[in-house]
Design a protein around this nucleic acid. Structure first.
Lengths: 197, 197, 197, 197
DNA sequence: GATGAATGAGAATTCATTCAT
DNA sequence: GATGAATGAATTCTCATTCAT
């Protein structure tokens, strides 16, 4: 009984963990981590609080699991970037791929962006900082002028902030994303060329 | 009334209100608004929680008062900007003054930056968004290309993020600030020139 | 069925019940009954909590089963004692046998000793008290002086407490046990002789 | 207003802390520490749980405060004992005074006796063990035979156990206490004389 | 013989807030 | 200008227990 041969099999039972993650991320991103109680998450899923604890040992583990699951592409990107030469092309490709990676894990990144104070206290804080530092170090020429270093970092940050900052600007989402990417590429290019003149 | 002409203005009889604000801001910026309890603030000041309530009606009022007291310069800047023509010089001056204003109220801005999720729920959320929008509208040419709009917004954001992002880059604080300012000016200039060609 | 003649008696197919009892007793004795959760027991055995419920209907049933399995020798001792005349020899033999019985079920008795408050609420509480009373009544001459009654009870208690109290006294375990036994015998003897003078 | 000139002044307000201690001790002794919830204590006092937290930072602090307040006499006794020569008279006096001290803090000691597993995990566990060791070391001749050492320790334990063990023996409480004391004195005397022959 | 998933009850603790003094 | 005492509502988390599979 149940499941039959249609595709509902995998969404019937055994998807609770996934559902918890989805709802939690939505609420964390909307209201912040501290303001979101487990009661609220449980209610939205129509399960008991204790059910959450069956799947995650603590509240923190929920956010940690989200972070780990959703930032894998960025981890991969860093791995890839490390193996490449520090050419302009590499840098541009990093920026392009990062832009794409961000857009996939958007709610998570909005959450991290908007809850830095919280994130700092959580275990993910450090992993996240590490990754940002790695990316930065790939984009940066350590002996470039300070101004160009700022330009590189600013590129990353423009990507980060882009989506959220432009929300109330009118225009098509895809176009805005493209514009943000272009500005970031520009900054990275300026920084690189200036440094290698 | 009060203050007389003797210069005791800022210490008056009992500067507790001020001290509460200072400690609260430090803690809010460090740990976030929700994670900072009134107990903690009171303990640091060596007064009771009830004493806080003599000076502020609610916890929110503390942060609101900080916001109002510390963002006056930015309010003034917006006022000034609105009266100016939309020339490149104006835009550059806005960026310069904004950079200076930010550096004065740094902890508050770090707090707002890092606790957006919280801020959104608080009364200050809207005032803050309004002001950001105003600044943006001064820097922006509404009919500029999207890319240039992004560049302008990115300038603001670079300023905002600058201080925090560059913390673990070595180098003198003042120099870093100057570099950040230069990048921001650059972006605004590019945006403007591109649009007015 | 089961057991056959091959000597596998104690490991049969699946000795889980026994393993649960062992682990539970160890944990109960170490941390107390309330502080030991079924989760902990299950984890140590590398089974699920639900598996425990296959073997025992409730948590209490685990401790009850331990009590019943491990105190059989004492039950027997009481039975035996009741059929004997109230001579000094009988009393001394009771003390000797009791000492031996205790040393076999040591962890259980330590548990009962150290968790009296808990035991009192459990079903075993009364059985235990009954048995202690029986033993006492065999050792006691009801019309002896109060002091001698105390001496008899104290003998029992010295045995009980002996092991644990002397833990941090240096010396060989067997010797300490013998010394404890000697003191207990002494008390019982004094009580008896004093009463029958 | 309030208090007038009768003696009710000090029981009106400001005795809550004391009342919490009283009720808590009664419940801890009756049901054990873990089985007694703060809700229960609060309900008996007709205050909220939060009120308990105004007076004690944690549940553990309640029991710690009881321990510290009620065992002062024993602490004093140890101090006194240390300054005395190791004569039989000293030892007997220790036993006498200890008996008296115990009878004052009876519920606490019953609690500690019956919740050793719990006590061991709490901070008081060690202080308590230390004190017992001190007392033991005053009563003990370190080079006495093992049997006599057991006898000394058994004396202490007889005192401890006395009250509780004899509860269901009929007879006047004071008389029972006297009998227990006599047995304990006897043991200490035997141990001493045997050792100094 | 056992698991995976869940529940309902309850625990300790924390918080912003109030108010008589 | 401030305190001491308290509250009510919420929070995270744990536990014994159940049951379909």
């Amino acid at each position: 009984m149940g499941g039959t041969m249609d595709g509902t099999k995998q969404q019937r039972r055994g998807n609770t963990r996934q559902r918890i993650q989805d709802v939690a991320l939505a609420l964390f991103a909307e209201q912040g981590y501290e303001k979101t109680s487990l009661r609220e998450i449980a209610e939205r899923l129509d399960v008991t609080k204790a059910a959450l604890y069956y799947h995650f040992k603590t509240k923190e583990e929920i956010i940690v699991s989200l972070f780990e699951d959703l930032t894998q592409p960025i981890q991969d990107l860093i791995e890839w970037g490390r193996g490449q030469p520090h050419t302009l092309e590499t840098k541009q490709e990093i920026v392009r791929r990062y832009s794409r990676a961000l857009s996939h894990a958007e709610p998570l990144f909005r959450f991290m962006q908007e809850n830095q104070a919280t994130v700092r206290e959580l275990r993910i804080g450090d992993s996240f900082k590490d990754r940002m530092r790695c990316l930065r170090d790939i984009l940066l020429d350590p002996d470039a002028e300070l101004v160009d270093q700022v330009r590189s970092v600013s590129a990353l940050f423009t990507l980060h902030a882009g989506m959220f900052l432009l929300q109330d600007l009118d225009g098509d989402v895809e176009k805005k994303r493209a514009a943000v990417l272009e500005v970031a590429l520009d900054q990275v290019t300026q920084a690189h060329e200036h440094a290698h003149r």
